[in-house]
Amino acid sequence: MSLAAETREAVRANPFIRDALRAGLVNHSAAATWLAERADLDGDPDAIAAALRRFREDLPAYETEARTASVTMRSGVGVVDDANAADADDGDPGDVPLLRVGGAGVVDGGDRTAILAAGDVDPAALAGALGRLAAADVGVVAAGAAGDALVCVVPRRDGASAVRVVEAALDAVPTDAE
């Protein structure tokens, strides 16, 4: 494999570098040195930097789009290991898990807060929200997106902040034209 191909592969393995390249925010020399050390690229940093510059020319520009969604929060939820046991079908909508992955689920009756967004949402919107929540030091204990809804479960004390963060994230969801 050529050094250029190895560099592209290393960038794809480190998506933050790809995003920074797309946004035009990279010091190519610094990124090349970092990749040479951390991604074990066997090549001169100047050659890696040149490969990064060429790769940047092939990438779409970094762009965002606003999404229309209603964001709410529901306090008093928890994450349980056996969502099926909590899924009693007695007609009460509160018994249905907000989110279920495998055997685990997000159900009423805990000390967490669920941030719910309904509307024009998808996994890209969830990824943007999770990135912003991490940057805001809000711990997420469960998250998912399906159909026209997404859910992020956070500590109760972070609920109001998390709503604002998710709303801001939905105003600028990164697009990927590739």
Rank of each mutant, 00 (worst) to 15 (best):
M1L: 10
M1T: 14
S2V: 05
S2G: 12
L3Q: 00
A5L: 11
T7C: 02
T7F: 00
T7W: 00
A13R: 15
N14K: 14
I17V: 15
A23G: 15
A23Q: 14
L35K: 00
L35N: 00
A39I: 04
L41G: 00
D44N: 14
P45E: 03
A51Q: 01
L52M: 02
R53W: 01
D58W: 03
A61D: 14
A61H: 08
R67A: 09
R67M: 08
A69G: 03
S70Y: 13
T72C: 01
T72P: 00
M73W: 02
R74C: 01
G76W: 06
V77S: 12
V77H: 15
G78F: 11
V79K: 15
A85I: 10
A86I: 03
D89H: 12
P93W: 11
V96P: 09
V96C: 11
L99D: 05
G103Y: 08
G105H: 09
G105N: 13
V107I: 13
D108S: 13
G110I: 06
D111T: 15
T113K: 01
L116R: 07
L116Q: 05
A117W: 01
G119K: 08
G119S: 11
D122N: 15
A124I: 01
G128C: 08
R132C: 04
A134E: 14
D137H: 14
A142D: 09
A145P: 04
G147C: 02
L150N: 05
V151W: 01
R156G: 03
R156D: 14
D158Q: 08
D158E: 11
D158P: 06
G159D: 09
A160M: 08
S161R: 15
A162E: 03
A162V: 02
V163S: 03
V166E: 03
E167I: 10
A169K: 05
L170W: 02
A172T: 04
